[in-house]
């Protein structure tokens, strides 16, 4: 790759950093209307929903059963009260066993 790669990298870094930085450095201390701050407080949970589905079902291309088993294991462990770490490691464990024997 030549210098073009490094220019591209510079551009990618810039357009990724700006949306991260602007709200944190310029929103602080501003009193937002309650409806706006209500919406902003909702965002984490909505984002998580959108990040999980449908992506979790398609982690292995062409093998939706893999995704379904993974999603099922993750939700089950989480509902049973496992912390984030046990959900991650437990789900990997379940799928490792599954892909070892399938």
């Amino acid at each position: 790759m030549g210098p073009a790669y490094w220019w591209m990298l510079f551009g990618m870094a810039l357009v990724t950093y700006i949306p991260r930085m602007i709200p944190l450095t310029f929103l602080e201390g501003k009193e937002l209307p309650p409806i706006i701050s209500g919406i902003l407080r909702n965002i984490p949970y909505a984002v998580l929903g959108a990040l999980i589905f449908p992506g979790i079902l398609f982690v292995q291309e062409g093998n939706i059963l893999f995704g379904i088993i993974g999603a099922g294991a993750a939700f089950l462990i989480a509902i049973l009260g496992g912390g984030v770490m046990s959900v991650v490691l437990g789900t990997i464990g379940v799928l490792a066993v599954y892909s070892l024997f399938m």
């Binding site: 949970y45 993974g70 999603a71 993750a74 989480a78 770490m85 959900v87």
Partner: peptide
Amino acid sequence: FAMFVGLL
């Protein structure tokens, strides 16, 4: 994804 589930 499992981590997202664990957080949600």
